[in-house]
Design a protein around this nucleic acid. Structure first.
Lengths: 190, 190
DNA sequence: CAGCGGAATCTAGCGGCGCTAGTAATGATA
DNA sequence: TATCATTACTAGCGCCGCTAGATTCCGCTG
């Protein structure tokens, strides 16, 4: 491959990431309903069809944003778990970090966990960052616990429910702390 | 009011319900993305603008479908709780009924708990059927438990998380039974 | 019973959506 | 410099939610 083609490929990769970033920023600023292919194209200063030379369609762009988010979430949860004062507090720290993530980046969270997606969860082709994020939950339970994956699934489901119901105004946001407390207490002493 | 006007009002109310039912059937058959004002109008055999003489917009139609759903859910949960062999089994029965409802009518469930809505939750103007549905959860805990509303909120959140993550393919559906078991065990013995 | 007037309903169209066929510009090669 | 494949663009398709204005309907009055 010539140096010229390498440069082209580099530039193409940059533009690829530019589109993802622009989509995410637009969604975080005005919500996903404001992310149209026209507005996105204008924002990256290319014409609409360019988007389709990088992604199969709008859904693929959303998925790309989501995958970026998984890495961030995994790092966020990992940090929280490591920073926990003692092992018994790890679960509480990770759960709180999860809810913080969801409330501080609602649009990103939606792309990851609410919007229709082709991303494979709990399968062979699951993106590693997603596995890692789930692993942070699993690691909060003792290794000799043979049902820790199940524990992690239910804990995650509960947190997701809390996050999404609160974000859509279906449960009052001010109760989150108390609910979190209850959930963690319920899970830890067993 | 003349008899003629009464008849007109009656017919109008019938058409109102016809639109709601048609929207729900279409959504359950082909998903909400297939419910467009054009297709809906064709289905009820009226022109598009008629929809707007009954509802402020498409969102209002979705909300109307959701409110119908709340009544059904409340009845479903109430029946499950009453049919439980003993009080200790009430929570398990209600939780299972909730998950059944979500999996058997996914489109209706989405209108109620996922799609953007103007319906007021946990407020003064909350629709009575919605209050009743939530009350079924609360009633599963002992009356002297002063935190039973909190218990109910967290249980509901967890169930919602499980339902929605499973429906969108983010957790494997075949694990639901085991997860339900774990959740209920976790909640009941306290 | 004729025909008026307001209400109910429809036709037609606006701007915007995701997406794509076909054209024009670009730039490396011969 | 001429060629030609690649790249990016303009223009447009069929659909969306929604609405202005024309049209039809129908109970009421003279």
């Amino acid at each position: 491959m010539s140096a010229i083609n390498e440069r082209r490929e580099r530039e193409r990769a940059q533009r690829h990431q530019l589109i993802i970033t622009a989509a995410r920023e637009l969604a975080e600023a005005e919500g996903w309903e404001a992310v149209t292919t026209r507005r996105l194209a204008e924002r990256v200063e290319y014409s609409q069809p360019v988007l389709y030379s990088h992604f199969n369609g709008k859904d693929a762009i959303v998925s790309a944003v989501a995958i970026d988010g998984f890495s961030e979430l995994a790092a966020h949860l990992h940090h929280a778990r490591q920073a926990a004062p003692e092992p018994g507090q790890a679960l509480r720290a990770v759960c709180r970090a999860y809810l913080d993530f969801a409330t501080e980046r609602p649009a990103l969270y939606q792309a990851m966990f609410v919007m229709p997606t082709d991303v494979k969860f709990a399968s062979a082709e699951t993106p590693p960052p997603l596995r890692a994020a789930f692993g942070e939950f699993v690691s909060c339970f003792r290794p000799d616990n043979e049902r820790r994956e199940l524990f992690a699934e239910v804990t995650w489901s509960a947190l997701h429910g809390m996050a999404v119901l609160s974000d859509s105004g279906r449960i009052p946001p001010e109760g989150q702390e108390e609910r979190l407390d209850f959930l963690v207490t319920m899970s830890t002493d067993r």
